[in-house]
């Protein structure tokens, strides 16, 4: 079977794809949730400044992941 299937490469692809495709997507969502938390709520509660930290950190992580992805692809 191994002559036909490079299991090693397959595992790496799966792990990297999960980290990027599900992980970064989730981080982006967390950042959006952070952004939403900075807004005042309709019940009169104030916005939470911590949201900004979450949002900015999240977007930076995603941006770094994208740059890494492009770099890795072009380094071939």
């Amino acid at each position: 079977m191994n002559a036909y299937l490079d299991l090693d490469a397959l595992w790496r692809v799966l792990v990297a794809a999960l980290a990027g495709g599900a992980g970064l997507v989730a981080v982006f969502s967390v950042a959006l949730a952070g952004l939403a938390a900075t807004r005042p709520t309709s019940e009169g509660g104030g916005g939470r400044p911590l949201g900004w930290v979450v949002a900015v950190t999240g977007f930076l992580v995603v941006a770094a992941g994208v740059v890494l992805g492009i770099w890795v692809m072009l380094a071939k």
């Binding site: 790496r12 692809v13 990297a16 992805g69 071939k76």
Partner: peptide, 12 residues
């Protein structure tokens, strides 16, 4: 994007 990048990098 993630699957394509990963497969191109790891040669699958």
């Amino acid at each position: 994007a993630a699957v394509i990048f990963a497969s191109s990098h790891f040669g699958f």
